[in-house]
Amino acid sequence: MEPTKEQLMDMYYYMLLGRAFEERLEALYRQGRIPGAIYLGRGQEASYIGSAYALKTGDVIAPTHRDMMAMLPRGMDVKSIMAQHYGKVTGPTRGRGEADYLGDLSKGIFTTVSMLPDFYPVAAGAALAFKYRGEDRVALAYCGDGATSRGDWHEALNLAAVMNLPVVFFVINNKYAYSTPNENEMKIADIADRAAGYGIPGRTVDGNDVLAVHEATLAAVDNARTERGPSLIEAKTMRMRGHAGHDPYDYVPKASLEEWEKKDPIKRYEEYLTGLDWFNDDEREVLATRVGNEIKDAVDFAEASPLPDPSEVTTGVYH
């Protein structure tokens, strides 16, 4: 089904919001105003928004440390994400989790861990629960190319395949696992080919084309909802920043980055939208202003929020 005008604009809004948030975060990091590390997904906006926007209320996602943008279409508030970066009590983990590991089960977002892809089996388990209770819900787990080398990745795909679970495994292949390029990670060209080893569908998609990602995810989600089981999507894209805020990113040739800059997913999407008769610069201005205000409010909110009380350091280890 073709996305409606409203859906097209929604996806555009979330891509702008994600990028603006990260740009602000990068500035705050360099200014020394936030205590932790940052892991930016610049250049991967289309992969995040196109996939997460294909889900419904009740579905769950398992993002990684780089995947904040995937939370936006699920209703995660940028104020609370910002407060998490500041280590404030108003962040979803109340200052306990590292900045980039956050979520909210009430919005269908797992609060994941640094060990990747530990939440691939967990997402399969969520899908098991949906199937166990006969619920019309789907789980979607994210990871990068690096995590596909670990055992949990393979255990999760096999388990989900054997049990025919309603889960979508979404790999964002951004060419590098920290500094290690694809060719040192695997002998195959397409991670999607690994699906065949588990007897499930695998598909490679242009990760910089939000509509292509959206369409591919809708198909995989539909597959899960109609009890045809799990599937694997590989979105090919490029990380346009270092692994973390401190990383100079000098292991990537400059020419390669310049090449990918031309394929910037937001610019590409704007070109597409501009070709539609109803889209104009006014719409773009309205969204840009809205996004700018939201980011400013998020920073104000985070800075005004209290830090956690040290006396609470030992509370809440157990339920």
């Binding site: 009740g58 166990y132 209770r133 006969g134 619920e135 019309d136």
Partner: peptide, 11 residues
Amino acid sequence: EGLNISGLAAA
């Protein structure tokens, strides 16, 4: 309303 035949049978 969120349960299919199998879910209803289980419940």
